[in-house]
Simulated scan of single mutants.
Amino acid sequence: MTMPSTGRRVLVSGASRGLGRAVARAFAANGDRVAVHYGTREDEARHTLDSMTGTGHVLVGGDLSDPSVAATVAERATDALGGIDVLVNNAAVNVRHPLAETPYEEWVEIWQRHVSVNLLATANLSHCAARRMISDGRGGRIVNIGSRGAFRGEPDHPAYGATKAAVHALGQSLAVSLAPYGIAVASVAPGFFHTERVADRLAGPEAESIRAQSPFGRVGTAEEIASAVLWLASPRAEWSSGTVLDANGASYLRT
């Protein structure tokens, strides 16, 4: 579905590749100007930038696990774009750490990293962006990338599942508190979808079982998830503020 172009100013975190790249491209194709954030993959982020249609897009780098850097990233993006109308919180880490196999020191470190990036960076960027939206008086949109794993559990990635559940809850809290300012907040909860990071799994022995998770017999695409993000960020989706939109090909159904 094509959204009407509004020439918005959009910050996408974690946009050097994968879903972030697809989201950045979708907004650019919609006529919006995008700040492409990256943590360490500057070359890949530049590839994202070069692949986007339109003009006025910018790169902003920084480790979002550091609260001061997160604030600087938001400031640089809003200064470069002249403001911010849409924030997409996509940056995340996802490291395998089943409890029975993970030494305690490693367990603690992995949990701290997941909380710092997946949850606290999302909260901190949301604060910075929302405060700018409030001061500008134009309203805005915040879309968080959650996960199906927040509902069904992630036995090999428990910190990922837990932090994504927290991201959903954060989004719903902000949806209520920011509505009086015309700011809608929602989340997307993807299932398994194809990116560079999981390409080896889809080419390996578990590929058939992964595809069989969905009755469609396939995994999703980053572009399909990006289209859901684009819709939730659109003017038409204000009444869907607070929602957690499942995008998992009927692979997990909540009741």
Rank of each mutant, 00 (worst) to 15 (best):
T102Y: 03
D85G: 07
A179K: 07
Y181K: 00
A35S: 09
G182P: 12
G20W: 01
T72I: 08
H127F: 07
S51I: 02
L59E: 11
T2H: 13
A159S: 14
H194E: 15
E75H: 12
S209W: 12
V143N: 08
I225C: 10
Q112R: 15
R46A: 07
P98K: 07
A150C: 04
P190V: 09
G153P: 09
A203P: 01
Y181C: 01
S240N: 09
A77L: 12
A162E: 02
E44G: 01
R148S: 14
G20C: 06
S65K: 00
P205I: 13
T195G: 09
G182V: 10
R46M: 07
E105A: 15
P205E: 15
G82Y: 08
R113F: 07
S177L: 11
N144P: 03
Q213C: 01
N30S: 15
F151M: 14
S51T: 12
V188W: 02
I134R: 12
A233K: 01
E106A: 15
A169Y: 11
S116Y: 00
L119Q: 03
R197F: 13
I84A: 04
P235C: 10
L230C: 06
A179L: 09
H37L: 11
G39I: 01
G171A: 08
A186Q: 01
L119I: 06
S126K: 07
V36I: 14
V198G: 00
S13E: 04
V34G: 10
V23Q: 01
A71P: 01
E105Y: 01
G153D: 09
C128T: 01
A92M: 08
N144F: 00
N144G: 04
L120I: 12
A24Y: 00
D79E: 15
